[in-house]
């Protein structure tokens, strides 16, 4: 069965797209899936950094698009996880050095060899966004519990819809458990609810995520923390498994009632 191409996007920068992509890639590989992550943030690449592959880059996505190498030559295999590889972005070019058709063709080629192709998109809604979404079967919208990020997410959901990529599914990143307990996040949850799309996962804010990313070993490699468990739950949901939300967010009903109950209880 050909794999699914999923683009991780947000509109706003700094919400954790790249870190999330790296962790989901690792979690899917740990589930035994074949997965290729693609960095389309040309000129500002960093998925390779987070995945600890920076100094093994020989060719990149622009080299592939311009025919300087074969796709297989540009892929970097993870040292530990056999099913995981990365197609890095170029650091020396810019977004205009590749087009949507070329990215879509690369996704199409990778689909045959993988269960999942995860595309990390750049911030913004310009050409880089269209490149990243061009080959996608589905989009994952990442937001944080901030008004500005939620507004951007709404815009991006609309763009994805207009491109025929569906409304997508939502990941709320960097939820602060302390704020949830005190009830300070209720307002944000109301706003997030207005996005009216399916919730794919909620990732608690955790310094360990950053520490691990800085070491180039995504946190999902170990399952000890809440954030890591959240990554694994999302990965399992991507494979079609029904996974209940973590205790603090668990309950039936809409996102809002779920979160409300979590806060009340």
């Amino acid at each position: 069965m050909p794999g699914r191409v999923i683009t991780v996007t947000s509109g706003k920068g700094g919400v954790g797209k790249t870190t999330l992509t790296a962790n989901l890639a690792v979690a899917l590989a740990l589930l035994g899936r074949r997965i290729t992550a693609i960095d389309t943030d040309i000129g500002l690449r960093n998925l390779d950094l987070v995945m600890g592959m920076e100094n093994r880059i020989i060719y990149d996505i622009v080299d592939v698009a311009e025919g300087r190498c074969h796709l297989m030559q540009a892929l970097i295999r993870d040292r530990h996880l056999s099913g995981l590889q990365l197609l890095p972005a170029s650091q020396t070019h810019d977004k205009s050095s590749i087009g949507p058709e070329e990215v879509a063709a690369i996704c199409e080629e990778l689909r045959g060899e993988n269960d999942f192709v995860l595309v990390d998109s750049p911030a913004g809604i310009e050409v880089g966004f269209y490149n990243a979404v061009a080959g996608a079967d589905e989009v994952i919208i990442v937001t944080t519990p901030e008004l500005s990020a939620v507004r951007s997410a709404d815009r991006v959901i609309g763009l994805a819809e207009s491109m025929g990529k569906g409304p997508g599914r939502l990941i709320i990143n960097r939820i602060k458990p302390g704020m949830v307990r005190r009830g300070d996040m209720l307002d944000t949850f109301d706003v997030i609810e207005s996005l009216a799309i399916e919730l794919l996962g909620v990732v608690p804010d955790d310094e360990a995520v950053i520490v691990a990313a800085n070491r180039g070993v995504p946190l999902a490699n170990e399952q000890s923390t809440q954030a890591s468990r959240a990554f694994h739950n999302i990965a399992r949901r991507l494979t079609g498994e029904e996974v209940p939300f973590m205790p603090i967010f668990e309950a039936r009903g809409s996102l809002l009632t779920r979160l409300r109950r979590a806060i009340a209880g």
Binding site: D154, R155, I157, G158, L159, E161, S194, L195
Partner: peptide, 12 residues
């Protein structure tokens, strides 16, 4: 009249 049965999002 037209009936639009969806969320009208930012930028639309």
């Amino acid at each position: 009249g037209i009936l639009v049965h969806r969320t009208v999002r930012s930028g639309q």
